[in-house]
Design a protein around this nucleic acid. Structure first.
Lengths: 115, 115
DNA sequence: CATATATATGAACGATAGCTCATATGAAAG
DNA sequence: CTTTCATATGAGCTATCGTTCATATATATG
């Protein structure tokens, strides 16, 4: 009922059109959570490394000059967001990019900041 | 000199290729800052509204059921990231999307979460 | 100038995030 | 089974973020 409350500043047909395209609460939450993952330069650096090659945790740590623990924590965040995959080979675990969306999103972001 | 320090876990040619594609520190920072802006559902909702129509601050506040202050603060964040523009008309200020990257980035994000 | 309306802004508070440190898990080798 | 190496994880600390509240700025009107 409150959705039809009088909105003194917004025309009725705009309210209707907005309601049509606005994602549901869950999608909005998931979308924001996804972009939060891209919103940290450590994680972005990890993703750029994985553009070139799959890599183990200690390799990423060495290459980025950070502790194994810090990298591992961030890899869990990337994994939870389904942005990276991993495979085990003995004691080593190799991480790689999950799909092409990662590149597409970062490319769009790069375009925005470099114009 | 430290860039050529021995990396026991990473092959030399991978280090070189990563260094070639890795954005500089400033770009990495700006990129992460940009995605942080998309990493809040209130700001995402504002952007979805602006897909349909430019809108004043109190219109956004009414439509999204939030205070004028909260919306205004977030609009400043969006403005700082160059994601929205504004024009004044008397006492009212109308906000609108700055460019097409906003849509492209959100579309890519939606694709990722809905698959 | 005083008032009303629209918007912006600074301080404060609670919640969240990223790193460090210590420790746990898990696989291979002896 | 014990040791070793790679990785994961939980607790704790500091910093940052989003909202609220109070107030300031700015434009129009009388």
């Amino acid at each position: 009922m409150e959705a039809s409350a009088a909105l003194t500043h917004v025309h009725e047909d705009i309210v209707r059109r907005v309601n049509e395209i606005m994602p549901c609460e869950e999608e909005l939450f998931d979308l924001a959570e996804l972009f939060k993952v891209f919103g940290d330069s450590t994680r972005v650096r990890i993703l750029f490394v994985l553009f070139e090659s799959e890599m183990c945790v200690c390799g990423l740590a060495e290459l980025l000059g950070m502790t194994q623990s810090a990298i591992s924590h961030q890899l869990q965040v990337l994994k939870k967001a389904k942005l990276v995959r991993y495979r085990r080979e003995g004691k080593t675990i190799f991480y790689s990019l999950a799909d092409g969306h990662v590149r597409a999103i970062l490319d769009q972001g790069m375009e925005h900041i470099t114009e």
